[in-house]
Design a protein around this nucleic acid. Sequence first.
DNA 1: GAGCAGAGTCGACACGGTGTCGACTTTGTC
DNA 2: GACAAAGTCGACACCGTGTCGACTCTGCTC
Lengths: 210, 210
Amino acid sequence: MTPPTGRRRGPSKGDRREQAILETARELLARKPLAEITIDELAAGAEISRSSFYFYFDSKLAVVVALLHGLTGELIAGSGPWLDGTGPDEEALRSSLTGLATLWTSHGRLLAGALAAAPGCPPIAEWRATLRDAHVKRLAERIERDRAAGLAPDGPAPAILAGMIDDLRLATLAGTARNGAPSPGDLVDDLVVVELRMLYGDLPIRHSDE
Amino acid sequence: MTPPTGRRRGPSKGDRREQAILETARELLARKPLAEITIDELAAGAEISRSSFYFYFDSKLAVVVALLHGLTGELIAGSGPWLDGTGPDEEALRSSLTGLATLWTSHGRLLAGALAAAPGCPPIAEWRATLRDAHVKRLAERIERDRAAGLAPDGPAPAILAGMIDDLRLATLAGTARNGAPSPGDLVDDLVVVELRMLYGDLPIRHSDE
DNA sequence: GAGCAGAGTCGACACGGTGTCGACTTTGTC
DNA sequence: GACAAAGTCGACACCGTGTCGACTCTGCTC
C-alpha cells in the first residue's frame, strides 16, 4: 500500500524486465528469423546480462512459447461465425480467413519459427496440437452437421478432411511468409474457393463405367 | 591401367568412404530425426575421424543435399500419366499419390528434416523450390488444358491452385510422418478425393441473391 | 535503524557441436 | 626412388547454451 501514484503495487522491476525481453523478442522477430536470434541479443535488448536472462526464462524457446500463448486468442477469434454456421457461407469463411491472414502478416516470423521448432520442442508442439485439435474438432462437427443436413457431399472422414483444411491454411500462409505475399487479399479469395470446394464440391463428372 | 581385376579403376578409397558416410546417414535417419544426428556419428559410422569427414562434405547439410538429390528421380517418377493427362483421371492420380506416399514412408525423416532446415540452408531451399516449381508448372498446364476444354471449372489462377495442391500433399505427408500414419492407403484415397474436388469440384449450391 | 529474506544480477565456468589448420601417412605414377 | 595427390588426424579456436555461487538491491518487520 505504498504506491507512488494511486495505482496499487506498480509492476516490480522483474515484471518490467520480463516484458522487456518479450518486447525485444517481438522486435527482433520483425527483422530476422527465430533461428538467428540469440539469447545474448534478447538479454541485451532488455539491458541485462545473458545469465540474468535465465532468471526469467528457461530458454529461447520458452520466450517463444510465451509469445505464442499471447497469440492464441487472436488466432481463434473471428472464426466463430464460420465454424458455428452451416452450409457454404462464403462470407463467414472469408472473414475467418481474413483474420488469420492479417495475423500472419504481422507475426509470420514468430509462427513460422515456432512451427519449424515444434518437433524437438514439446511445449511448442503441444501448443500447436491444442490449437489444431480445437479447430479440427469444431470444423469436423460442422462437416458432420452439413452432411447430415444434405448440404455437403460425403467424402473423407470429417476429422481427416478438417485436418487437411487446417494443414492447407498453414502451409499456404507459411508460404507467403517465406516468399513475398502475392497480395494478401487475393490469397484469401483463393483459399475461400478452395476450401469451399474441398467441403462442398461434389464431382460433376463421374467417369462412366465402360 | 593397372586394375586389380578386369574392372578398370575400381572405386577409390575415398569413393568408398563417401558412400559409407551417405549410407550411415541413411541408417541414422531411419532411427532418429536429422536434428539429432551429429557429424561425429556420421564420421564414426564411416570409420573415419570427425575432421576427415570434412574432406568429403562441407557440413551435415551437404550430406542431406546429396541424399536429397538421390531421391529427386523417385519423387517425380510415376506422376507422368497424371500430369500429362486430362480430366479427372482418378486412377492416374491415385497411382501418382501412391508412389509419393510410399517414398515418404521410407524416407520421411530425411524429407521432414530437410524441409525443416530449408529456410536457412539455401541449397536445400533451392532443391525444394526446383522440385516444387517443376510440379507446379506441369500441374498448372494441366489445369489450363482442362479449363480450356471445359473439363474443369474456373477458379484460382492455375499456378496458385497447383501450388496449393503441392503444399497440401507435403503437409499431409509430413503430418503422417510425425504422428503414426492412419493407414497409408486410406490417406491416399482421401487425398485423391480432395485433390479432385479442388480441381473439378464446382459448387452445386450458389447462394441465391435475395 | 538493524536485520533479514527474497528478488534480481552477474562473472566464471563447463559443455557440446562446428569448422579450420598444419603436419603427417598413404597411394599411385613416372 | 622421388614426387604429387589423396586421404587422415590431433589440436585448436569459436560460438551458443546452460549452471553455479557469490554478490547487491529492495522492502519488510521488529
